[in-house]
């Protein structure tokens, strides 16, 4: 058992491309100095180079050249694409003054919409975390007729214009729709309720989980499970102690991406939400409403609070990921 667990440990260090790009910053900022197997290697390298004169205290020469240049481009690119537009929203909302800003973002209607947006996104991302893992598992582990078609289907919510998704979902779940006509007599109203919001957000978030977990599962050799079985682990133990630790970082990333996407989703939700104030009105719609009233500062204030909340949550999830990967790496 221990042997199997130990063997899987390196797997989390090879997450899919998507993960690398997004987390580079955080990994750099939060990862502890090289420990474990790296420490040994570093020690050997240091010993070998011991006789060489050291340059400056804080800048160790890198074997890979071009850090300065690449880092410069990274900062420039991130600034152009992310930071400058976002700071514009901050400045615009600053024209409002603190009191007005606070009054705007604590209005009951804004709070209700934030609760709905973040709550529904969380539920949708959790659903996708569970079922996305299942879908990825089936697609990777089994060979069956139509597997490629299923695989392509997963990407559809990505490719589809969100309005199409919204219209399609509404048509299906409305009281006279394919599914709605059977659900409504049971007292389950989906379209035009918060439940409809969750359905739409689950729909658009699915590919994020599947596509981040899939490559990791592909790298995870079935032999590991077999080894676990020969060591006497039952199915649940194998899943808990062998598979889950390996896919956990990717799963968490997929969850994060699905969640972040859901929070910002507009197109598909407005068709199915019903958009009633205090009940089924998502925050992005509220921003649009404020814009329609030429209330640019109010709209950006709501945008800012969304931005701050999203960033805080993403940071939290990233920290969680860092913490869990360290914990699992050591066990």
């Amino acid at each position: 058992m221990m042997a199997a667990a130990h063997h899987t440990a390196p797997a989390p260090t090879a997450p899919p491309r998507l993960v690398r790009g997004g987390e580079w910053f955080l990994n750099r900022a939060f990862r502890a100095p090289p420990a474990g197997r790296h420490a040994k290697r570093d020690g050997m390298v240091r010993e070998a180079l011991g006789s060489l004169p050291r340059r400056s205290a804080w800048r160790r020469p890198s074997v890979l050249p071009g850090f300065g240049l690449a880092f410069g481009y990274t900062i420039l690119y991130l600034s152009l694409i992310v930071l400058i537009p976002l700071s514009a929203t901050f400045f615009k909302s600053a024209t409002l003054g603190w009191d007005a800003f606070w009054a705007t973002i604590t209005a009951p209607r804004v709070l209700a919409s934030l609760r709905l947006s973040f709550g529904a996104s969380l539920i949708a991302a959790l659903l996708n975390g569970v079922f996305g893992l299942l879908v990825a598992w089936v697609l990777v582990r089994y060979r069956f007729f139509g597997r490629r078609v299923c695989d392509a289907l997963v990407d559809l919510p990505f490719a589809l214009p969100t309005a199409v998704a919204g219209i399609a979902l509404t048509a299906v779940y409305a009281g006279n729709g394919w599914l709605g006509q059977y659900l409504e007599p049971l007292g389950i109203k989906v379209a035009f309720t918060p439940l409809g919001v969750i359905v739409a957000l689950t729909f658009i978030g699915l590919p994020f989980v599947v596509r981040t977990v899939q490559p990791v599962l592909e790298d995870l050799e079935p032999e590991l499970e077999e080894a676990a079985a020969t060591l006497g682990a039952n199915r649940l133990q194998t899943f808990q102690r062998v598979i889950l630790p390996a896919v956990w970082p990717a799963l968490l990333t997929g969850f994060t991406l699905a969640f972040a996407r859901a929070v910002g989703e507009y197109g598909s939700v407005i068709f199915i939400a019903g958009n009633l104030p205090m009940v089924s009105e998502i925050t992005p719609l509220l921003i649009i409403i404020k814009l329609e009233q030429y209330d640019y500062a109010g709209a950006t204030s709501v945008a800012v609070i969304m931005l701050v909340l999203s960033f805080a949550l993403l940071l939290l999830i990233n920290l969680l990921q860092w913490w869990s990967s360290r914990r699992m790496g050591r066990s």
């Binding site: 407005i270 019903g274 958009n275 009633l276």
Partner: peptide, 11 residues
């Protein structure tokens, strides 16, 4: 009595 508030008249 309004169950849905769409954003536009055509909607």
């Amino acid at each position: 009595n309004v169950p849905v508030l769409d954003t536009g008249a055509r909607g």
